[in-house]
């Protein structure tokens, strides 16, 4: 029984810890793989972070997914828009910046990087909506060569993150994103 389900029979149960195996079958990096977490945990960590960054990529073209990206952005989280995702975000009034994912992985490992806005580095990386294997490889740099905490809130299990959802169906994924957003103090800016 999930925490959320406790005593609330009418609510749909979302368990994002199931199917916590690498989405690409062979993508097993080593002994340390992401802890599967519930959305509330990811959301609370995001809420507590002093300077988080949300990375989104080319797979945010789905309207339901895009709506959640915008909600996270409007809740005050700066967005690193990788791939060609900026074309979906540029007109939404968000603090979104284009950056190449591979370069971003390099910069995030560098304590001297001034950040996307020149205001300093970040203390938490959250991501979703990036080509699976591309994201997995890029964050392997952060896992091994930085002290950055990395949380995947993608619909795929990402072993190279510190925390990740399991592999999710789209409807569960969208509900999980909603639960993440629910934890944010400025969520009502949507």
């Amino acid at each position: 029984m999930t925490p959320k389900a406790s005593g609330k029979q009418e609510e749909k149960i979302i368990d994002t810890t199931r199917q916590a195996v690498p989405f690409n079958t062979g993508n097993i990096p080593g002994p340390k793989m992401a802890r599967a977490v519930m959305p509330a945990i990811s959301g609370k960590m995001l809420a507590k972070a002093k300077r988080p960054i949300l990375i989104v990529g080319s797979e945010i073209d789905d309207p339901d997914v895009l709506e959640r990206v915008v909600a996270l952005g409007k809740a005050g989280i700066q967005i690193a828009s990788v791939g060609d995702s900026y074309k979906y975000l540029g007109d939404k009034g968000l603090d979104a910046h284009y950056v190449n994912m591979h370069a971003l992985a390099s910069y995030l490992c560098d304590p001297e990087w001034p950040g996307l806005d020149g205001k300093g580095g970040y203390d938490l990386v959250v991501f979703f909506g990036i080509t699976y294997y591309y994201a997995s490889q890029a964050i392997s740099a952060l896992k091994n060569f930085s002290r950055m905490k990395v949380i995947s809130i993608d619909k795929y299990y990402h072993p190279n993150a510190d925390m990740s959802f399991g592999n999710l169906r789209k409807d569960v994924f969208i509900e999980a994103l909603d639960e993440v957003i629910e934890q944010l103090p400025n969520k009502n800016s949507r």
Binding site: P29, G30, K32, A105, S140, A141, N144
Partner: peptide
């Protein structure tokens, strides 16, 4: 910029070594 596919090394018989 290194993006390892594996966090271990198994090139010699000392290993596998966890390099995570």
């Amino acid at each position: 910029v290194y993006t390892p596919t594996a966090d271990t090394c198994d090139y010699c018989t000392y290993g596998k070594c966890d390099l995570t």
